[in-house]
Each structure stands twice: as C-alpha cells, then as structure tokens.
Design a protein around this nucleic acid. Structure first.
Lengths: 342, 342
DNA sequence: TTATAAAGAACAATCGATTGCATTAAAATA
DNA sequence: TATTTTAATGCAATCGATTGTTCTTTATAA
C-alpha cells in the first residue's frame, strides 16, 4: 500500500508504442489525435489508474490554477462565509484554494504573502490584519505579477481590485433608523481606526448625526471596543454617565452588541425601551437573543462569490494596462426587536 | 506592473559567474558552499528580489508540503474550527492547506479527492459527506501513496488514521444526565444513519437507556431530523403524542435543539420544567438562548490540531508497514439551563 | 617538495507534462 | 498517376530547482 510509482504519460506511451506527446494531447483533448488512439489512450489511462501530475504541468504552464487566501481568522463567521463563497466559484473553474490565516499578526501576514508568492498562485485574495503596519508586502505581490484582490479590510493606498462593503452607507442607515425610532443620544463603539472598515463605520455614524442635525458628543464615542469584553466595559461606563446614551451602535461586531445587551440586562435597563442596540454582521445568534438584535448583514457568501467572479471575469484576462476595479457589496440593515421602541 | 520575468537561480548564477547548483545549495543552506560565496548569493538574491519557484522544487522533490482538506462545508462552525486548528500547526511546519468543500455531495467529494491526488498533496484530511456511497475514492488515495487521515465522519471500513470524537460516550453522558434530572421519557432526534457519528450517538442513547433500566420506545425515536426545520417538525409530532416525551436529545446539532426550543416555546411548553432539551456541538448561540441549551462540546479546534500533529509525528514518517492509529478526542457535556429541572 | 585529502564549484541528469516544429502517412485534388 | 493538402504522430526543448558525480583548487600531511 506504499509508494508504488505513479503512472506517467510515458508509461502509457510505452505500453501503446506511442509518444508521450500524443498521450498528452489526447488527455487534454487537443484535436490533433485520432479518435481511435484517443480512445485507446483513455482506456489505458483508466486501466493503469493514471492521475495527471499537476506539479509537472504547473511548472510547465507556470501557473497552478490556485488562488491564495489570507484572512485574519478562518473560523470567524464572516471570513468562513467569504471563503465558502469563494470556493464555490473557484471550484467551478477548476481552481483550488490555498488558505492561510494571519491570526491578526502583521509579521505572520507578511510570511503568508511570501509563501503564496513562492507557490506561484494566480491570485491572492487578502483581508489585512488589525495589526496592519505598512503595505510593502502587498505591493510586492504586484511586483511579482500576481493578481491581487483585497476585500473588506484593505490597504487603501494600494491601487488594486477591491471588493468592499459600503460600511459608511450601512452605518448611516443604522443610525437613521435609530433616530427614526426616537432615540436621542446614540453612542458608538469603535474598532481600531487603522482599519478602513472601522473608520468608515465611524464616518457613517458622524455623517448620519450631522444629516439629522444631532450634536456630536465625544463622550459617547468609545475607542477600541471591539471584543465582547471591551464592549461590556465600555457599556458599563457609558450607562453610568450622568447623561447616559439611550442607544448604542456596536459598530464592530455582533459580539460587541451582545456584550452591550448582557450589561444592560444585568443593570436592569430594558431593551429596546430604555436602550436601543444595533450590532454589525448578522451573526446567527442575533436572531435568537431576547430581544433579538438589530444588525447589518454583510452578504458574506455573496462577497466571496463576487471576489471569485471578479477574478475570472476581469482580473485574470487583464491586459497590460490594469484598471483595478472596486466592487461594492451593499450591506443590509436587519431590523429586529432591540431597536423597535414602538 | 505586469509579468516582469521572475528571477531564477540561473539569473543569480549568471550575474555572479557561478553555477546554478551552487546557488541552489547556498540558498538551501547546504554546507558545500563557502561562506563568502554564500553571502554573495544571499545578497544578490535579495537585491534581485528573488523568490524561489515552489512549482519547480515541488516537481523535483515530488512533494509540495501541502495538506489537502475535504469537508462538507467550510463555513459550518465545527469544520471551520477544525480547519483553523489544522492551519495553526501546519503553518508551524511550513506546510500549506488546500481546502475543498464537498457540499454534502458524494460526486463532488470524489472530484475533490482526485484533484488533491493530482496535486500530489502529502496528506489528505477528510470528513465524508452525508451522501456517502462507497469508499472506492478513499481507497484510491492510499493506492497513490498519499497519507490519509479521516476525522469525525469516517468511512469505517477503510483502515486509516482516524481522529474521532467519542460520540457514543458523550451521548451516554448526556442521557444519563437527563435521567439524573428526573426525566422519564426521553426522545431522540437522529441524523442519517449511514454516517458513523449519528449511528454512534444513537447507540449511546440506547445504551444509556438500557444501563438505567429504561424501556426503549420506538415512537420516541425520529429519523433524519438533522436540520432546524426537520427537527421542528419532528418535535411537533412528538409533543402531540398521547404520551409525549419530557425530554428531547437533539443528537444531530444545536440547530436541531434550537428547532425544538422554538416549537416548545410556541406551544407554551416550559423548558426545562416540562421539557428538557440537549443539543450537540456547543455552538456559540446555545449559551445565550433562553433558557441556555445543554450541549456537547467537540473541542473542534483541538481536533484540528490533533490531526495535524498526528500527521507530523506519525503518519509522515511512516515506515513500510502502516499501523494506522485512531485518536479519540473526548467531547465534553456542557450542562446549561435547558436540562436543569431543579 | 611531493602526495593526499578535503573543500568548493561545475556539470549534467532528472522530475513529468506541454508545445512548436518536423516528419510521416493518408486523403484529396489535379 | 503525380502532386498537393491535411491529419496524425514523433522529436526535442522547456519550465526551474535539486542532487549525484566529476573536476579544480586549495590546504594538510608526509
């Protein structure tokens, strides 16, 4: 059960008194082989349990029909969904996915990029770490003639294909909805501002307040509240203010929103009457908390599909002059009980 | 920004008036190169932005330091976690992960296996589809001299390395716990019995009842209730019986358990007083439903790590005679409110 | 100083599929 | 029947790194 040598096209050729080139052409279905020999070759290949050696053809073709993916965490819902969507489309095109996780470490992200460059992947799909420092490694991808598609968390200054959520717009909608429900003092839980997505969500928050003629109250904006624990802490502080907020937009994640909800419940503050809560991401659990949590769906699986389609339709066939496109996936506000005062 | 030719060891050699072999040896740090030239080569490599071409070295070495993973769904919590665990360890060893999802389709699973064989991956890690039909393709992996580790859902009859959860034992514990809480008529929601895991959970259920001298009541056992919807339907039927169950073990997943909980809530049946509910998997949401749901944690990330370690410690170095090992990861009963009558 | 060893570098084959070009055989045309 | 066209197949180089073997050049020992 060990190491019997693999059958190669040479083995098949020898057996049939043919040349390897004919075998190759037959198997790849090039027209230059007669039907008779083609059949013969196919049958023999099956009989000898032949499996083409991709390593060899990859080297020859200089491509391995592979897309490399780098995400902070594979098992984070959003990323897992994007990857699932990606896989679905790449599979249809006979491409494979090599997956790396940077674990939110910049150093590791750089290593992942290098590995994928060595592997000669056709394209790298990346969402950068929160620990993002500079974009040298991102640029290096392009220097090696490898296609690059950034998504969600991106290095703004590098001119590449990008697939984004319109975080600003969705935040505006969320805040407008809260205002529409009669909330007057809306707090914001922010994520690290070196990430585009969190900056944009904050912009949306500010813009919406401005649009509706609300004051911007610095004490209602809390930095770096992007885990459940950090959010809980921030919430405790917020709710202890002399003039506490009557709504909290947990712009970083639904886990943050959950932290808010738990604190409010413990403090005997009723949601949504005394406090409105809006999260981000539409995690499965937001539907079943009590009350259920208003949130924003990112259409993550569709995002993955969009990335793959972008590659196959445009990036792959790209001419000398690149015109990197940016695709915006429209997120969707999902209104649930946690913000329905009526 | 396009297709500048990559630097190869030949380019470096030419520039330094050396032979490519020396460059290769220098870069791979073989002792047969003088320190002086080694330094020269390293510097030039950096200067020319050299990245080794893995495709070429893969072909030469006949291996690509890659582990292929086939799971039904990448974005299912359990599998995403296993993959994350896998990645963590394989990364440490400089290996890559190629990921495929079979989408619960047998046909597609076969295709995935073939792709990975062609790619000459060093090892295939697989959890089979619910649609599992025969193990021809699994055996084919071994025929090609590729290491194989099955996990969770496995083809029982193929003698390979396996990493499993002790589903039977965990089910026994769950049922014993229910009995200990005073539940008398315990129903079972089963998954497809062609999958080992669901068979074992059923066995555990039966065994526990026997151990405690309980009757086995066929009408309390529902086949194929393995989605939230199917479980909800099954639950409605069960609770409408003349003599309904007072506890339900949703052995297939926490989503099933959630279906049970929702139906019970709608029917005004109080959990845990009138109905105990136990799920499987310890999904994040089980902690925050009301009441929170008793479930079984599979230690999925650890499972992924165990798989990788198994490969690097044993499978990889394996001698001619293979002694495939089976590793059992002990799942853990997490007791929550949905089964605490007291 | 000569013989011998050892280190350093060059040479060349190899992994297996692909592909441009050359050759042969068969078919179509004159 | 002679000639041209076309289809089928063979030949050989190639992709880039690796590695066993051979050849030089030093350094070391006798």
């Amino acid at each position: 059960m060990k190491n019997q040598k693999r059958t190669t096209i040479y083995d098949i050729a020898r057996k049939l008194n043919l040349n390897a080139s004919s075998v190759s052409r037959a198997l790849s279905n090039t027209s230059k082989v007669s039907e008779a020999t083609k059949k013969l070759i196919f049958d023999t290949a099956k009989e000898m349990n032949y499996q083409p050696n991709s390593l060899a053809s990859n080297l020859r073709r200089g491509s391995n029909r592979t897309i490399g993916v780098i995400v902070p965490r594979i098992n984070q819902n959003f990323f897992a969904n994007v990857i699932a969507g990606l896989e679905e489309i790449t599979y249809e095109h006979g491409y494979n996915l090599v997956i790396c996780q940077s674990n939110e470490s910049y150093e590791r992200e750089v290593e992942c990029v290098n590995t994928l460059i060595n592997q000669q992947v056709n394209c790298i799909v990346i969402s950068v770490t929160a620990d993002f420092q500079d974009d040298e490694h991102i640029r290096n991808i392009l220097k090696h003639g490898i296609q690059l598609i950034q998504f969600d968390r991106v290095a703004d200054n590098v001119d590449t294909f990008k697939v984004l959520n319109d975080n600003r717009q969705s935040s505006i909608e969320a805040i407008s909805h809260l205002i529409g429900q009669g909330y007057k003092r809306i707090a914001l839980l922010e994520g690290p501002q070196n990430l585009n997505i969190f900056r944009q969500r904050k912009e949306g928050y500010l813009e919406a307040l401005r649009m509706h003629g609300f004051d911007i109250v610095p004490e209602l904006m809390r930095e770096n509240a992007w885990t459940q624990e950090l959010s809980a802490t921030a919430t405790r502080e917020l709710l202890s203010l002399p003039n506490p907020p009557d709504a909290i937009f947990a712009s970083t994640s639904d886990f943050s929103a959950l932290g808010v909800l738990e604190v409010a419940t413990k403090m005997g503050i009723s949601v949504p009457d005394q406090l409105g809560i809006c999260g981000y991401s539409n995690e499965a659990f937001t539907e079943i908390t009590s009350p259920s949590i208003t949130t924003i769906d990112q259409h993550s699986v569709d995002m993955g599909k969009a990335i793959a389609k972008l590659y196959f339709k445009e990036a792959r066939s790209e001419a000398e002059v690149s015109v990197p496109r940016i695709i915006n996936i429209q997120p969707q506000l999902i209104i649930r009980d946690s913000t329905l005062k009526n």
